[in-house]
Write a protein that binds this DNA or RNA. Structure first.
Lengths: 232, 232
DNA sequence: CCAAAAGTGTTCGACGTACACCCATGC
DNA sequence: GCATGGGTGTACGTCGAACACTTTTGG
């Protein structure tokens, strides 16, 4: 019958992605506590008594970075539960992928000394991050790439008002390829509910002013955005 | 700083789907222990000390149903962690979607009195299942539907050798629509690595004998199978 | 012969790709 | 003018949908 149940703690880890300076970046913190004190890691913390995991993710997001989790896209990834993944004891981690526009990080964390954006490409595989956070990062990036194909979350990477060029920049940064601006624009505007024209235009220095858009009501993308070729 | 961590147990619940008699069915057990003794539920149990969640899922699969979990397709779904989801205490559940061919269920469970297949359609929403297992079922069915579009798991619903008609029957049962046999066959055989011809043919009573196939090496389906229309 | 299931050929239309071309701005 | 980015028009190819038609079995 029932043998001894595992005595464990449940952690929530956050992989917060954004697009800055044309590259995909992730929010990392320098750990202030053992284990792995001083090492870079994904922000996170333990689940409390009466908390849903998703509520814990939103709370940690606020505590460690000052970001408002209720306004971000949050997506749960498969749990990490290797018995020896945390040297301080049995901890199962519930990782979340969060997608944020390019925001400053106002409040440095309490448990962590300073949160900052780091390009995903500069965190070489198997290298710098504490725990198994590199595996979580890989999973989150792959999920983000897939989500751009089938959903409209790309717009969550942008501010409230954005141009086609900015939205296309999200796809190019996350997928690491370049897209044809003309076909991209048509595809997005012809997909009902993806974006809504905001009427205004923006002049960013050189070039013809671009029309501004805001997010539309539709979440799923059908037909999907195609990652294959479409290159320019 | 760190407030009290949640004291909790981690459960693993299994949503084992198969296609029997032309309909999508799920394996349910009658609970032998409190809470919800006597009610139908998804098979599952608690995580042990040195166990990965996925290993616990495979172990529970064997204990409660006698099925060999290492031969099935296993996919983790988002966790369920509402604080009051289990009246006996704080339990966070890691649900798994398992996909099985139409097999008998040899060994009745130890914790549960008798496992049996039940058509998904007959488990009316919000009705019979214990805990929040109905939400888990809905999630698993939706995931299975999506997986048929993008992966070759449909073949895992079938035996080692199967006909095009059987494979198509999986799609029709899981999606609840009918597909054009002629276009379906072409689409599958032209997707390299989905299925491999086994050479032999099978005569199932009436009609022209069907060629037999086995699973191919490819897991992801590109381009995807389309659920929209294609009806006959 | 007839019914039923397996499979092939073919036409049509939708859509993705590529690219020529025009528009509006800063310098 | 010229470079730069925004946006439209359009031709071509690919692929999914629909369906006529042939093949091979059982009754």
């Amino acid at each position: 019958m029932a043998r001894e149940h595992a005595v464990l703690r449940l952690a929530v880890d956050l992989c917060i992605l954004t697009v800055r300076e044309g590259s995909l970046q992730v929010l990392v913190v320098e750990r202030g506590n053992e284990p792995y004190r001083g090492r870079l890691a994904l922000p996170g913390g333990f689940l409390r008594g009466d908390e849903e995991p998703s509520a814990a993710a939103i709370r940690e997001l606020g505590e460690e970075t000052g970001l408002d989790g209720t306004r971000l896209h949050l997506e749960q990834l498969p749990v990490f539960g290797a018995p020896d993944r945390d040297p301080s004891g049995r901890v199962v981690s519930v990782p979340y992928l969060a997608i944020a526009p390019d925001l400053p990080v106002p409040r440095p964390g309490s448990d962590a000394t300073g949160a900052r954006w780091s390009p995903v490409a500069s965190l070489v595989s198997g290298g710098t991050l504490a725990f198994d956070h590199h595996d979580i990062l890989d999973l989150a990036v792959e999920r983000a790439r897939a989500s751009l194909e089938n959903t409209t979350v790309a717009a969550v990477f942008c501010d409230d008002l954005f141009t086609m060029g900015e939205l296309r920049g999200v796809y190019e940064a996350v997928w690491g390829i370049s897209l044809d601006p003309r076909n991209f624009s048509r595809k997005v505007t012809k997909t009902a509910g993806f974006v809504e024209p905001a009427g205004a235009r923006r002049t960013d220095g050189v070039g013809r002013p671009a029309a501004l858009y805001r997010r539309g009501p539709v979440g799923r993308l059908n037909p999907a955005m195609l990652r294959s070729s479409m290159s320019s």
